[in-house]
């Protein structure tokens, strides 16, 4: 399988809650709105969602509570059975898996972190982290070694014998993270992992999380209701409302071109200059390369502020990570973004 195939790909996925959702969906004429479905006595948890997650990508699903983001991620791991559509994980239709195949998939490929940690209260940190290894029958010595390794990775050395109730919220979530990483999953689901934490701890955990991701390079589906968190972490953001995806794009594009009024409401208060990168604002090369010191595509407009104000040229060359010039940044356009008129 080449690296271009999406790791998770879902097409027209529906998840309805109610008396007989399959029949209701089969009989639905055209596409009904969320409220119409509700009037019929069903709740649309996920409403006709098609989305793909590439290898090594971090997709952040953002939405307010009740928007269906947690339901969607539970469909990916088949904690919920979907009502309609299809979900493929690494090219395999997960709805066709038998119970044992599903257990195998979860034991070897998937890890999940929960909002309220979901730790087993009667097990120590070590036993909690080793739990998935124990379930797949690894021997005691091996699983202990691996668990200690992950515990060190999340910075909880010395707390191995503690029970969850003896730890702070941040520490408990570190245990949750360690547990989800113990089996070395390819796909990592994080369901609002930092929402239950204090703002300061949350910031610290986000940094920690970025550090881990730098090291591990997993395929990640990250759920949050915090737009700033989404902007900070995401490769791509999917914004959900009433079970449907309103827009799915890179942070730059969402900030610059919100697809709907609903998305625009989130972006309104955002300091766009801190989100938009030079690369996203650049035009493709049009035959000629402007003069001047090139700017790196991955710097934000905010970081370029001094340069933009002091420079005199109309256009600046933009280079990618390898140093090759890939585009042209219009200084005026960038200044508009900086001033908040973009």
């Amino acid at each position: 399988m080449n690296s271009q195939t999406p790791v998770i790909s879902c097409r027209n996925v529906w998840k309805l809650f109610g008396a007989d959702p399959e029949r209701y969906l089969a009989r639905m004429q055209g596409e009904k709105s969320y409220d119409e479905i509700r009037a019929d006595g069903y709740i649309a948890g996920v409403k006709n969602v098609s989305i793909e997650v590439g290898r090594g990508e971090m997709l952040v699903i953002m939405g307010l509570s009740g928007s269906g983001k947690s339901t969607l991620v539970r469909c990916f791991s088949r904690l919920h059975d979907i009502t309609g559509g299809s979900i493929e994980v690494e090219g395999q239709d997960i709805m066709s898996l038998t119970e044992n195949e599903l257990i195998e998939l979860r034991r070897n490929k998937m890890g999940m972190v929960f909002q309220s940690f979901g730790l087993l209260p009667h097990r120590t940190v070590l036993d909690n982290v080793a739990f998935p290894l124990e379930m797949r029958g690894q021997d005691r010595h091996e699983r202990r070694a691996r668990a200690l390794e992950v515990i060190r990775l999340v910075g909880l050395e010395g707390r191995e014998e503690y029970f969850p109730r003896e730890l702070s919220g941040g520490q408990q979530q570190r245990v949750g993270i360690a547990r989800s990483l113990a089996i070395e999953p390819d796909i990592w689901f994080l369901d609002e992992p930092f929402s239950a934490l204090d703002p300061l701890i949350r910031r610290e955990m986000q940094d920690e999380f970025l550090r881990l991701q730098e090291m591990l390079g997993k395929t990640i589906v990250f759920i949050t209701h915090d737009f700033d968190e989404a902007l900070r972490l995401a490769d791509r953001i999917a914004i959900m409302k009433n079970g449907a995806v309103e827009q799915c794009d890179t942070p730059d594009k969402i900030v610059m071109n919100p697809a709907t009024d609903y998305v625009a409401k989130f972006t309104e208060e955002i300091d766009k200059a801190r989100v938009v990168h030079a690369g996203a604002l650049a035009h493709p090369l049009n035959g000629h390369v402007p003069d001047g010191q090139p700017v790196a595509a991955r710097t934000t407009i905010h970081d370029l502020a001094r340069r933009l104000v002091s420079d005199s040229g109309d256009e600046l060359p933009v280079t990618d990570d390898t140093g090759a010039v890939v585009g042209v940044l219009n200084r005026q356009a960038a200044l508009d973004v900086l001033m908040g008129d973009g």
Partner: peptide, 26 residues
């Protein structure tokens, strides 16, 4: 708590393991 249950499922518990290691202790 449903999250504890889901954590158990995501750890790849069989039904018996769920009952023995997740539900009853919790």
């Amino acid at each position: 708590s449903p999250e504890v249950v889901e954590a158990g499922k995501m750890a790849g518990c069989t039904r018996w393991q769920m009952l023995r290691h997740v539900y009853l202790p919790a």
